[in-house]
């Protein structure tokens, strides 16, 4: 089993490398079509000689294929280039913003998974209760409302009208391991609530519905009935026998949702002025800052691969019957 596991890991890494390669080609070609960064970088009053000097200093005077090969050669040495705008290593810029985004995404996910699984279990075990019907109706609303609109409503409601919670920035942070974290201070935590709730809403509804559907299916299975017939406490029947059985699809969704949260938190980060990767990405696209865009996308792809890997390992822990036969799932 460990041998095939190693082979599987190698295949996974090769797949990831291919994805990164394809992604960089797309970004280079796409941005080339979108516009010339030199137009943005040079002052409008600059003459042709000044233009050529600036273009040459960033290597933008070269043909695109040569720019790309140069990028690949450097990337293999761990250098993803310097930002055109900030004149700093692009990767460092992205990594610097990573903790803020990770913090926001994790907070949203913990909120969504905790409430989603809890409410889903309740709705699944008591399908006829009025509260369960209310929860299910609410989940439809949660799935169908657009995230940016909910974000704006949260700001208007809780910040503008009620004035309970701040609506922009990370608030006070505490440095742990050289990185600032918001959730360790009361002020930071207050800043975290609204954006996290905004990001969590859709996921919460999704996980809730998934949990409920799983419970409805599993609760009639013989082994759940047998568990009850053995006189086990309800907490054990639900917490161990039912939950373990429905956890695999939930873990999958949590994994995928975590990735997409990190990758696409730009809307929420923009609304709440959260200084994360998403906002950096939006700003970089505006100014065609190619090295930062590439560095950001590389980081996101690697994150997708890592989370998928983690989910696959979790499957094996959750269900001993998942062998290497099921390992061919794509990245």
């Amino acid at each position: 089993m460990t041998g095939s596991m190693a082979g599987w890991l190698v295949r996974r890494s090769a797949q990831a490398a291919l994805v990164v390669l394809a992604m960089t080609v797309i970004v280079f070609v796409g941005l080339h079509v979108a516009g010339n960064p030199v137009d943005i970088l040079v002052p409008p009053e600059a003459d042709a000689a000044e233009r050529a000097r600036i273009a040459a200093s960033f290597g933008l005077d070269q043909p695109l294929w040569r720019q790309y090969l140069l990028f690949v050669a450097r990337a293999l040495q761990g250098d993803l280039g310097r930002s055109f705008i900030y004149n700093q290593p692009a990767l460092a810029l992205v990594v610097e913003r990573l903790p803020a985004t990770l913090e926001l995404s994790l907070a949203a996910l913990v909120l969504a998974a905790g409430l989603g699984i809890g409410l889903g279990l309740y709705a699944g075990l008591r399908p006829r209760a009025a509260a369960a019907r209310l929860i299910m109706a609410g989940s439809v609303v949660g799935l169908s409302l657009p995230g940016f609109w909910v974000g704006l409503m949260l700001v208007i409601g809780f910040s503008v009208r009620l004035g309970w919670l701040p609506s922009s920035g990370r608030g006070e942070t505490v440095a742990v391991l050289g990185v600032g974290w918001s959730f360790l201070t009361a002020d930071g935590l207050a800043h975290l609530i609204l954006p996290a709730a905004n990001l969590a809403l859709f996921k919460l509804a999704l996980i809730l519905r998934l949990t409920r559907a799983g419970v409805r299916e599993v609760v009639h299975l013989d082994y759940v009935r047998f568990a009850r017939a053995r006189g086990l406490a309800p907490s054990r029947v639900v917490g161990v026998h039912i939950l373990r059985a429905i956890l695999i699809p939930i873990v999958t969704v949590i994994g995928l949702e975590f990735c997409s949260t990190v990758a696409f938190s730009m809307v929420t980060e923009s609304i709440f002025a959260w200084p994360g990767m998403g906002r950096l990405m939006v700003e970089s696209i505006h100014v065609l800052d190619r090295p930062v865009i590439v560095a950001y996308l590389v980081a996101v792809v690697l994150l997708f691969v890592a989370v998928n890997l983690l989910a696959d390992i979790l499957y094996r822990l959750l269900d001993p019957r998942v062998g290497t036969a099921g390992a061919g799932r794509g990245a």
């Binding site: 013989d222 082994y223 047998f226 026998h241 959750l318 269900d319 019957r321």
Partner: peptide, 8 residues
């Protein structure tokens, strides 16, 4: 086959 929980 069905009465014992497959994952425990």
């Amino acid at each position: 086959m069905m009465t014992l929980n497959p994952v425990l």
